[in-house]
Amino acid sequence: MDLETVKERAGPRQFAPKDDMPEEYRKAATRMIQFHANSEVMGGYLEKPFIRQAPSIDRKLAFSAKVQDEIGHAQLLYRAAESLGVKTRDEMLDELARGDGKFLNCFHYPMESWHEVPMIAFFVDGAAMHRQATLKNTSWTPYAHAMDKVCFEEGFHVKHGESMLSELMNGSKATQEKTQAAFETWWPRIIQFFGPTNDKSVHNDFAQEVGLKTKSNDELRDTFLDTYVPKAEKYGLVVPEYPRIEYDEELDTYHVNEDDLNWDEFWTIAKNASEGSHEQINSRAQAQEAVEWVRESMHGWEGASGAGTPQAAD
């Protein structure tokens, strides 16, 4: 199929592995899905310490299940990315370990206290849900299928994140203040989750033309703000003065003043070049390197059935 045909036919779940897709499409789709899969792994990495630090046994269980779900999503997404025939899963995981794999800006920052947890578990996950819901209509069918399951599970995560935020904002005055401070730190990063504004985005136009994306960064960011500004306020959080968020009465939508955001920081992170990028990529890589001997042993077992590569029980 040539690129012109792809653009003509582009629509929800239009293309599948049986189709002969042009290289440009396969590469763009791989880049996008690999980024998504990497983000699941690195998000899980960031949240993992809080399984231990959760302040109730129910929250501990829910948080452990959440980190497990992120790995499950990564597994699904790497499979969807592999179906494009550009890279294998091992290649993509190696790239992540080497620091060449890209992932969401928010997961490049360290997370140190429980007050920060809902910033990821409610707002970032909420933003992710918002974006992923539109990707159920992506043109690459295996990606859309993965989104069906991911969105279903993320719904529970966001609910849990909301309940954590609510608990903190009903806590002591000191707890509320620390949560507000965490919100102020994370809020600009959360807005940047949706990527650069349309005019600065390198990949946006092509991805939309071939139906990989169905909404632009700007559209997604605006509609996210429409839902989450009121939610933040409902729990007593005060949206910081900067970046300025303006309400457009004519279009009935919120809009951020892009110039108030730190785009140098964003682009540094996009190159995996921030301090947090190094810290998080390298410690994960080190842990993976430490079990290389297990993977090597496993190569000798291939073809054997059973739990050498155990599947989840349910």
Binding site: R52, I57, K60, L61, S64, A65, V67, Q68, V291, Q311
Partner: peptide, 29 residues
């Protein structure tokens, strides 16, 4: 056991281990 979440040798063993850890917490509860 949860120390191994994200750090298990493969995505599959990570999932299996997380299942076991959650069962243990569930039993403790």
């Amino acid at each position: 056991l949860i120390e191994w979440q994200i750090y298990a040798p493969t995505l599959e063993s990570d999932l299996a281990l997380a299942n076991v850890a959650q069962d243990e917490f569930g039993h403790a509860r």
